[in-house]
Structure formats: structure tokens, C-alpha cells
Computed example of a mutant assay.
Amino acid sequence: MKKLFLILLTMGTLLGCNDKADDKKNIVSKFPERIVSLTLSGDEMVLSLADNNKIKALSGKIAEDGRYSNIVEKAKQYPKAENNMEFVLSMKPDFILASSWVSKDIIQSYKDFGINVFTYDIPITIEEQMNNLQKLGEVLGSEEKSLELINSQKEKLKYLEQKLSAVKDKKRVLYYTTDGFTSGKGTTIDDILNKAKTVNLASEMGIVGFKSLSKETIIDINPEVIIISGTSSKIGKAEIEERFIKDVSLRNVEAVKNHRIYMIEDRHMTTISQSMIKGLEDLIDVIYPELKVKDVG
């Protein structure tokens, strides 16, 4: 019966969930003492900002998966919510951290239990991610930590921009997933590719968001560099390169001819936490190795 109650509550059929205030209003009357995070990016941010003994649960086992997570070892120390409302409530949280993709009904259900819920928007740019860090730092009472983290990212951006000033001709780059998709305008990948002083061929083609890409299109756009998102796949770097290089139909593609096919870790390239800056650094390192961006800074 208890589980049925929680299911109905989650669906918004009890307590008038749909009539409550908008979940974007992040009102926190005091600094939290018992924190639960519902998303991986939230896990990464809160572990960097909050006193770790105040964190009672992280999002799920994904936080311990090194393909996606930048906090594997730290995450092992905490229970996991796994989208289980009954478990989350058993942690007696006074603060829940969620992204805007979490169901509004679920967020409202937690609010109806009197729990403060802080929701952050999905960042498209590194600057938007910094803004999330700043806001979260304020509500956690960790403004000094968030400012330190933001300033560190700004310094890294400045350093990378200085290095990139030596680039005269932008490389034409295709970001491609192992299941055949690319990322165009309005994505974090596009922001990172632009900041890396490259031409994102998907955006140049007018692609918005994510879209599948045929082999014929790859031949037509003829990328100089192909970046593979693939650590989420069991296919390794060598297998990916072999797949492209042994494909006779792709032999005249610049990236294939010159063996400029690189796999970058998903935990850096597809994250929406403060680790986005690492994705940018990884990208510059493989596209413009002569800049030696990882030697210092």
C-alpha cells in the first residue's frame, strides 16, 4: 500500500501536485544538512561543493561507471537513489538536487513532502555550466568553493584560448558516435568544438541537436578530423579506427587517409558538469597536438 501511495504521488494524482508552484523556483530557506542528488552531473557538482558528510545519496550506479563518471572512487562511498522515491525519502533529505529533465511531477512530489528541491537547467555552454555552479554554491552555503572552481575554469579557458591563438586554419571536424549520430547547433558538443577553434561540420550543414549521419554524407563533407564518442561502447579505439580505415568507400576521406580518427572519453565530452572543460582540453590536444596544451596549465 505504501508503494502504491508513492507511485500515485509521483504521478501527481495526490495532494494536487499540478497546482503547485513552478519547479524552477529554487527556494532554500537554510543551508542543507542532508543532501540527495538525482543525476550524475548533480553528483559531480555537489561532491565538489558540499561538505561530503552532508551528502546522503547519489544518483545511481552510473556514478561508479568510469565510462561516464568523473567521480568513480568518491561515489563508492555513498548509497544510490536509482530513481527510487521510497529510498530517497528514507534518507530523510532536506535538499534534493535535480536537473530540469527530471519529471516535474516527481519534483513536485518531493516538494509536497516539505523537501527543498533545487533544479538546474541543462547547460549548452561551459559558461552556462559555470552559472549552475555559482547558483548551487549559493544555496549550499559553499560560495567560496564554487567561486574557486569557476575561477579555475576561467583560467583554464584563458590558457587554452592563448594556445589556440596560434591556429590559423580551423580544422573541419566531424563528431560521430558509434551508433551513427552527430551533434549540431544547440549542443554542448557544438560549444566545445567552437571553443576548440574548429569547424563543426554538423552545424555547418545546418543540423540542430542530434541527428543520424549516413556514410554517404561523411564522404560528401570530407572531414579532416573525426572525433568518436565511444567509451560508452564496448568497441575500443583500435576497432573504431580499423572500421573506418578498412572501409574502402571511405578511403578518400581526409580523416581516414591521414589516420586522424580519435576517440575521446565520454565522461569528458558528454558531461554537463564542471568536467566539460576537460572535454575541451582533450579535444584540442588531439586536433592540434603541436600546441601541447596538456604540458602545463
Results as ranks from 00 to 15, higher is better:
2 K>T: 08
3 K>T: 11
3 K>F: 14
3 K>Y: 13
5 F>H: 03
9 L>A: 07
13 T>D: 01
13 T>R: 06
24 K>E: 08
28 V>R: 01
34 R>G: 04
36 V>P: 02
38 L>F: 10
50 A>Y: 00
51 D>C: 09
52 N>A: 11
55 I>H: 02
59 S>T: 10
65 D>C: 00
89 L>W: 05
91 M>Y: 03
95 F>Q: 03
95 F>T: 04
96 I>P: 06
96 I>W: 05
102 V>D: 00
106 I>H: 02
108 Q>N: 07
122 I>T: 10
127 E>F: 11
130 M>I: 06
132 N>G: 09
133 L>C: 05
138 E>H: 11
142 S>G: 08
144 E>P: 06
154 K>S: 06
158 K>P: 04
161 E>R: 08
162 Q>E: 15
166 A>M: 12
172 R>N: 12
177 T>N: 01
184 G>Q: 02
194 N>D: 10
201 L>K: 04
202 A>L: 13
203 S>W: 05
211 K>R: 13
212 S>M: 10
215 K>Q: 12
217 T>G: 03
221 I>K: 05
223 P>M: 10
224 E>A: 09
228 I>M: 14
229 S>W: 00
230 G>T: 03
232 S>R: 04
234 K>Y: 06
235 I>K: 01
248 V>L: 08
250 L>A: 06
251 R>L: 15
251 R>Y: 11
256 V>G: 01
258 N>H: 09
269 M>N: 01
273 S>H: 02
274 Q>L: 15
274 Q>E: 12
274 Q>N: 10
277 I>L: 07
278 K>C: 08
279 G>Q: 02
283 L>P: 02
286 V>A: 02
297 G>N: 09
